[in-house]
Amino acid sequence: MQHPAFEEVTIHHHTDDATFKKKVKNTTILLSILTVVELAIGLLIYNMHKGEAPNELLVLMFKGMVCILTLAKAYYIVSVFMHLGDEIRNMIMTIVVPLLLFIWFIAAFIWDGNSYKNLRNKYDAHYKESTMPTKH
């Protein structure tokens, strides 16, 4: 069927039902598992915070793991649910490459946010005293 609205489209894909259903099912299970793992790590961090003097590095590592898991979830949602994985390579690139801008976007903003804290702690004693958490 060559529909007028498809004039720009050269090749029409047809996925058969069985493969499609299987793919969706697998992805759903995978997303659920990833979410459960994330929640488990979240609770782990919570319990570490409750204890005496949590190991900062360990907490940071766990948080990093959650971030990676989130990126994996995002990958599956975009690739399977939004069918980006089925598009042709150049299309995928036009979506993925501009997202690389986020690297510098995030890095520079966070860097400067952190620097703002350090500068205030250095030059504003009252600020430091009144906002720095104390261990009770």
């Binding site: 995030i106 903003f109 966070i110 400067d112 946010g113 804290k117 430091k128």
Partner: peptide, 15 residues
């Protein structure tokens, strides 16, 4: 990212 920036500029953030 704004949220992250502010969070990084604070000495304390709620759990």
């Amino acid at each position: 990212i704004s949220y992250g920036t502010i969070r990084f500029s604070q000495n304390f953030w709620p759990d």
